[in-house]
Design a protein around this nucleic acid. Sequence first.
DNA 1: CAATTTTTTGACCGTTTGGACAAACGTTAA
DNA 2: TTAACGTTTGTCCAAACGGTCAAAAAATTG
Lengths: 204, 204
Amino acid sequence: MDNPAKPKRTRIQRERRELIQEAALEVFSQHGFRGSTIDQIAEAAGMSKPNLLYYFKSKEAIFVALIDRLMEAWLAPLREMDQDGDPATEIRSYIRRKMEMARDFPRESRLFANEILQGAPRVMPLLQGELKDLVDEKAKIIKEWMRQGRLKGADPYHFIFAIWATTQHYADFDVQVRAVLGPERGGEGRFEDAAAFLEKLFLG
Amino acid sequence: MDNPAKPKRTRIQRERRELIQEAALEVFSQHGFRGSTIDQIAEAAGMSKPNLLYYFKSKEAIFVALIDRLMEAWLAPLREMDQDGDPATEIRSYIRRKMEMARDFPRESRLFANEILQGAPRVMPLLQGELKDLVDEKAKIIKEWMRQGRLKGADPYHFIFAIWATTQHYADFDVQVRAVLGPERGGEGRFEDAAAFLEKLFLG
DNA sequence: CAATTTTTTGACCGTTTGGACAAACGTTAA
DNA sequence: TTAACGTTTGTCCAAACGGTCAAAAAATTG
């Protein structure tokens, strides 16, 4: 997770690696790791397979780079939750941010979901370390808010889990959501409706 | 989805097909469809690959049989929700049943999640048909309960989604849940804690 | 028992896959 | 011009994969 000797990269290398990661995100999020081929990614990135392997030494390396970048963005919204802010406002903002991520970055969400579903073989240390620490810290804050009577009392861990589950559901299970809502209600408005519902559910 | 000429099967065929599906559930739920090999499934079932292919004509056929059986169990809890029952009791029972499924059948849950994540290529018709119809029907009931003031008012569709998301989370994201809760709180009690939390969340 | 059907297996095949490699190409700078 | 370096590609390979097939083994039936 640290950087043992950071590699110096040319401009082209930075651009190409970025291009490859974008293509890989598209492919991996649709087919999962094992279901994706280097050829698919290479084609999506508009280059030949050997050329792609010049920038990433293996399929695994692409995936790891993607996950690494993803996890940062993943933890950010919870990091922003501020102990000194108004509890209701902080929770509301957190839900909003998570919902926006589900809407704007569904591929990242699905990629992460896939990794966890397979037993988190590549991010387990991160879950037990950085993520657990962060949640422990924020759970303490939420608990304090509840103790002060500024937030309805409940288990802060399951509270956070519930926010994760409900918001990510709209990215990960998007096809099911749309299928059930049907053509009329399944339009773009569904994220707004969901956000409004969740605010009431968690704060009402 | 119907049965065009139901095949007559010997006792051995019934037993072997069952054995294979159990093994396939184990393998598919861990590695996904593309990530699983026929050899893996055959080994888990304690037979040779050609022998397995004697009972199921392809990898796809195993998967379809599995999904078919799964979907029935999947819809059952919602089907049981009774219009004439007490709203709070009905919702509570529904949450309990879904939570028990997450605890007792996590492989089935993960298999389903995997299928949806990949865009539901094999169950889309079912989602748009049977599932949508069922949800439409139950949403109407919930809406009526809310109109009568017997249940807190909210969008019944997102209400149902939220129950799905939160309960299935404890099966699909189990490793993450355990990692965050840590060794102390991540024991078997987590399902009870979660169920209690969710009842309050949805009915409190 | 023998005849017939069902079940099991070893050997095999064509394709796909991740990855290696050397040769070619392009660019820049001495 | 040439040497050096970064980039790109065609070709190739070994392993893994889904699936076939003929024939042996086991079970069932007459």
